[in-house]
Amino acid sequence: MKPSGRVTAVAATLLVLSMVSSVLLLQQVDKVRSNATLKEVLYISSPKTIKRLSLGYNSLMADIYWTRAVQYFGGKLHAGDRHYELLGPLLEITTGLDPKLLVAYEYGSNFLGAPPPLGAGDPQQAIQLIEFGIKNNPDQWHLYYDLGFVYYLELKDYQAAEKAFEAGSHTPNAHPFMKLMAGNMAQHAGEYEMARMLWTATYQSAYEKLIRANAAAHLRAITVDEDVLALNQIVARYRNEKGHLPQSFADLISAGLLRGVPQDPLGHSYKLAADGSIEVADPDSLPFIQHGLPPGYVPTQAVKLLPVE
């Protein structure tokens, strides 16, 4: 090998070794300074300052901050972490940089308003975010829908929810559900009926798979809760008629109270416990259910959302 060839080979080897070493060292540094990168970025927390620094290219900066917000939320959700302190500021910066970025209001309010572990559990901050969005995009019915959604589902404030749906129903191209939902809020229609209507509208109007999967999981949970309540009534009726609890669903079927073994929306048969209570077979696959949970069941940290397609 010529002297120059030898130098090239040695230099190339050293270069590769240096690159590998720097990556390994950085990984060690990251372990010592966990979460430091994101906190450093939020050292500038004022949307106005970031807007000035972006030299007019603020819409690209907004996209970057929105991606950071999604990554931050997704990372916490995946880890089962219940603390989302930076989510609000990240969304505030995003929408401050680009007030027309509708996706940040629609999904951001969902991230902020939903109770942990599926969200930050801060409906007031979600409301502030959507109200800022409505101020800048008064013709977008989706935003009024999101506002009514948070008022109803997270705060149970029927009057405010009705106002939001009513206002949204007057915007151009408003979803027909808006008028209907405003009416239902005013009449305080059944909880399950209203919740089903809201989640159905979310499922139908969202494009993002995660949001659709979340809506589908809530719709399944509503069905399970209604099924379990109805089955409890049937068991109680059997007990009144026969004077004892049914041993199995076969007893209820032979008594003419059921046509067959009832199944949950995922196709699993419900279980009839010895004490007459109804339980679901796979509670991990049915997040958000209020009824039918086995005694002592502890939900998993990270919520399992089944794919919608």
């Binding site: 690209l60 996209d63 991606t67 999604v70 970025l101 999904y107």
Partner: peptide, 20 residues
């Protein structure tokens, strides 16, 4: 990449990033 790491802004990013 953007479709995989963000939500619903693929078109926006292509236009914003491209023009910037």
């Amino acid at each position: 990449l953007v479709g995989q790491i963000s939500i619903n802004i693929e078109r926006l990013v292509v236009i914003n990033l491209g023009l910037t």
